[in-house]
Design a protein around this nucleic acid. Structure first.
Lengths: 129, 129
DNA sequence: CAAATATATGAGCAATCGTTCATATGTTAT
DNA sequence: ATAACATATGAACGATTGCTCATATATTTG
């Protein structure tokens, strides 16, 4: 192993102008218990991000930023078929990114929590560079 | 449009016990200039998250949490072929998630900034629920 | 220069993904 | 019950993805 380990990483982080990364790094390393997490957890993590990795799903999430919407309105807003939207809403729901509420014939979807907003926001920050 | 708009969202957020989401929401809405961002930006955002949406790439990023590593060591650490790792490092590099440094025959890869750490960390937080 | 080592890359293939189309399920109104 | 509307879902198909294998490029050493 030629890899530079542990303390050097912390040293590098400490020597940067922006110290905000250090706390997050420590939190993550603590969370990881100083080891690469078990395969299963990394698999879940990849699966989680995979859901964000599709333009249609991102557009749905952005549409829901402004409040809950029913399926047909989302479809109309994105100029896509009801079926396509419904399929993707299922993916989003399985990943717990959205939840739904039925009101008669129509089903309203909304973001399941505002964790999602900060993840989207952080992604946007990164690509604007 | 049956969608609930704007102020209602803010109202909902204000009425939650945890107020931490509001600031982030406002930041994002401000960033979006109160509109769904142009298709191109959402496309880029999806592309960005897509990179995190693969188990091998996540494992590489986690390996690099502890410091820079050369290609063959990453391959050994993850029990994968050098070629597979090299292909994925290219994807990670194109997405600006890693950068590399050549030292003789060997090429060392490292995380390009600690933004990535906080994104990983935030993802882990979400799946641990 | 040739050999050895580390990395990068192109072609090909199996698997996964996102959409469409047809159809099923669920709800309301007549 | 029947019709109308909203949503969900299964099959199928084209596109994309991640790996393997073979080979190319780059660097060091003899």
């Amino acid at each position: 192993m030629k890899a530079v380990i542990d303390e050097n990483v912390l040293h590098d982080l400490c020597c940067e102008e922006d110290h905000s990364g250090l706390k997050e790094h420590m939190a993550l390393v603590k969370k990881l218990n100083n080891e690469i997490p078990p395969e299963e957890e990394l698999f879940d993590l990849a699966d989680f991000f995979k859901v964000f990795g599709d333009c249609t799903r991102i557009r749905i999430l952005c549409a829901l930023l402004y409040g809950e919407m029913c399926v047909c309105d989302i479809a109309q807003a994105l100029s896509m078929t009801q079926s396509a939207i419904s399929h993707q809403l299922r993916v989003l729901k399985q990943a717990a990114l959205v939840r739904s509420r039925r009101e008669g014939k129509t089903v309203y979807y909304m973001l399941s929590d505002d964790h999602i907003i900060s993840i989207l926001s952080q992604g946007l920050e990164h690509i604007e560079e």
